[in-house]
Amino acid sequence: MPRFHTLMLVIAFLLQTVLPTAAQAQQAPELVLADKSDVRIIVDISGSMKNNDPENLRQPAVRLLAEMLPSGSTAGLWTFGQYVNMLVPHREVTEQWRAVAREKSAQINSVASEPTSARLSRWPVTATTRVVFSKTPTSFC
Rank of each mutant, 00 (worst) to 15 (best):
P54I: 00
A61M: 07
D38C: 01
Q107I: 01
G81F: 01
V32K: 14
Q26A: 15
A127V: 07
D38R: 11
Q82Y: 13
P29F: 01
S139H: 13
M86G: 14
P89M: 03
T21Y: 03
L77M: 00
V84W: 03
T94K: 01
L14T: 14
E114A: 12
D38S: 07
Q27H: 04
G47D: 13
A112N: 02
L14Y: 07
S46H: 09
D53T: 01
Q59E: 11
A118V: 10
M68D: 12
V132T: 12
L33A: 14
R130P: 05
A118P: 04
L9K: 07
L19N: 00
A34W: 11
P20D: 03
L65I: 15
S113A: 12
H90K: 09
R40M: 10
E92T: 09
T129Y: 15
V43A: 05
R119W: 11
P2A: 15
P70W: 06
L14D: 08
R40Q: 03
E92W: 03
V32C: 04
Q26C: 10
V93K: 02
H5G: 07
K36L: 06
T21L: 14
P70H: 05
G81W: 00
V32D: 02
W123R: 12
E114M: 15
S139P: 05
L64D: 15
L87Y: 03
L64T: 13
K50V: 12
W123C: 06
P137D: 08
L65M: 15
L87I: 08
K104G: 08
T138Y: 15
A34Q: 11
K36G: 11
K135D: 12
Q82K: 08
S73A: 05
F140G: 03
K50F: 10
M68T: 11
V62Q: 06
P124F: 07
V131C: 15
S139F: 09
A112E: 01
S73R: 01
T6F: 13
